Deep mutational scan, measured.
Amino acid sequence: ATNIVSKVKWYNSTKNFGFIEQDNGGKDVFVHKSAVDAAGLHSLEEGQDVIFDLEEKQGKAYAVNLRIK
């Protein structure tokens, strides 16, 4: 899926990962520091509106092509 609009559930800049809620009630989506860095960001804030693409690797959903709404 591409261009999903949602909100950051939480992000831990010390552990370099977090999760984004899915508005459709699906499972929370993992977001890694590499996606945050690629977006030119230093961190994410809880409740922040984001747009991302969903990529599945080894049966897990990852946020990629992250951008701020």
Rank of each mutant, 00 (worst) to 15 (best):
A1T: 13
A1K: 15
A1P: 10
A1I: 13
T2W: 10
T2M: 12
T2V: 13
N3Q: 08
N3T: 08
N3R: 08
N3S: 10
N3V: 06
N3D: 12
I4Q: 08
I4A: 06
I4R: 10
I4C: 10
I4S: 06
I4E: 04
V5R: 12
V5M: 12
V5Y: 11
V5N: 10
S6I: 04
S6N: 06
K7W: 07
K7M: 05
K7R: 12
K7F: 07
K7N: 05
V8T: 03
V8H: 00
V8I: 09
V8Q: 02
K9E: 01
K9F: 03
K9N: 02
K9M: 03
K9L: 07
K9S: 04
W10N: 01
W10D: 01
W10Y: 07
W10L: 03
W10H: 03
W10G: 01
W10F: 09
W10K: 02
Y11N: 02
Y11A: 00
Y11V: 03
Y11F: 09
Y11M: 02
Y11T: 00
Y11S: 00
N12C: 12
N12I: 06
N12K: 09
N12Q: 07
N12F: 07
S13T: 12
S13I: 12
S13W: 10
S13A: 13
S13Q: 11
S13F: 10
S13D: 10
T14M: 13
T14D: 11
T14P: 06
K15V: 08
K15C: 10
K15T: 07
N16L: 07
N16V: 03
N16R: 15
F17A: 00
F17V: 02
F17S: 01
F17Q: 02
G18V: 02
G18A: 02
G18N: 01
G18Q: 00
F19T: 01
F19Q: 02
F19V: 04
F19W: 11
F19P: 02
F19Y: 06
I20S: 00
I20K: 00
I20W: 00
I20P: 01
I20V: 06
I20A: 02
I20T: 02
E21H: 14
E21S: 14
Q22G: 15
Q22A: 15
Q22M: 15
Q22D: 12
D23R: 15
D23A: 15
N24P: 10
N24L: 10
N24M: 10
G25I: 08
G25P: 08
G25A: 09
G25Q: 09
G25V: 07
G26R: 12
G26W: 09
G26F: 10
G26E: 10
G26T: 09
K27G: 10
K27A: 11
K27Q: 10
K27S: 10
K27N: 10
K27M: 10
D28R: 04
D28Y: 05
D28W: 06
D28S: 06
V29L: 06
V29D: 00
V29I: 13
V29Q: 01
V29T: 06
F30C: 03
F30E: 02
F30L: 04
F30H: 03
V31Y: 02
V31I: 09
V31L: 07
V31G: 01
H32C: 07
H32I: 03
H32N: 05
H32D: 05
K33F: 09
K33P: 02
K33Q: 11
K33W: 10
S34G: 08
S34T: 12
S34C: 10
S34L: 11
S34N: 11
A35L: 04
A35T: 09
A35N: 04
A35Y: 05
A35V: 09
A35C: 05
A35K: 04
A35D: 05
V36W: 03
V36A: 03
V36K: 03
V36C: 03
D37G: 08
D37M: 15
D37Q: 14
A38L: 10
A38M: 10
A38Y: 07
A38R: 11
A39D: 01
A39N: 04
A39H: 03
A39R: 03
A39K: 03
A39I: 08
G40R: 07
G40F: 06
L41M: 09
L41K: 05
L41E: 06
L41Q: 06
L41I: 11
H42T: 13
H42S: 13
H42I: 12
H42M: 12
H42N: 12
H42L: 13
S43H: 13
S43V: 11
S43D: 11
S43F: 13
S43A: 11
S43L: 11
S43E: 11
L44K: 00
L44Y: 00
L44I: 08
L44G: 01
L44M: 05
E45G: 09
E45K: 14
E45P: 07
E45L: 13
E45N: 12
E45I: 14
E46N: 13
E46Y: 11
E46I: 13
E46D: 10
E46W: 12
G47F: 05
G47S: 05
G47W: 05
G47A: 06
G47D: 05
G47H: 07
Q48C: 09
Q48G: 04
Q48Y: 06
Q48L: 10
Q48M: 13
Q48F: 07
Q48E: 09
D49P: 13
D49S: 13
D49Q: 14
D49F: 15
D49L: 15
V50P: 00
V50G: 00
I51W: 08
I51R: 05
F52H: 03
F52D: 00
F52G: 01
F52E: 01
F52Y: 12
F52N: 00
D53P: 00
D53V: 04
D53T: 06
D53K: 03
D53H: 04
D53E: 05
D53F: 03
L54C: 07
L54F: 07
L54H: 03
L54G: 01
E55C: 14
E55A: 12
E55H: 11
E55Q: 11
E55I: 14
E55W: 13
E56P: 04
E56T: 14
E56Y: 15
E56W: 15
K57S: 12
K57F: 13
K57T: 10
Q58G: 14
Q58N: 14
Q58V: 08
Q58K: 12
Q58H: 14
G59N: 08
G59C: 06
G59M: 05
G59A: 05
G59V: 00
K60F: 11
K60C: 10
K60E: 06
K60Y: 11
K60D: 05
A61S: 13
A61F: 15
A61E: 11
A61Y: 15
A61G: 08
A61Q: 14
Y62P: 04
Y62H: 10
Y62S: 09
Y62V: 08
Y62Q: 12
A63R: 00
A63W: 03
A63E: 04
A63I: 04
V64T: 10
V64N: 05
V64L: 04
V64K: 09
V64Y: 05
N65R: 08
N65V: 02
N65A: 04
N65L: 02
L66A: 01
L66P: 01
L66D: 02
L66Y: 00
L66S: 00
L66V: 09
L66Q: 01
R67D: 04
R67H: 07
R67C: 06
R67W: 04
R67I: 08
R67T: 05
R67N: 05
R67Y: 05
I68N: 06
K69V: 14
K69W: 12
K69D: 11
K69F: 14
K69A: 13
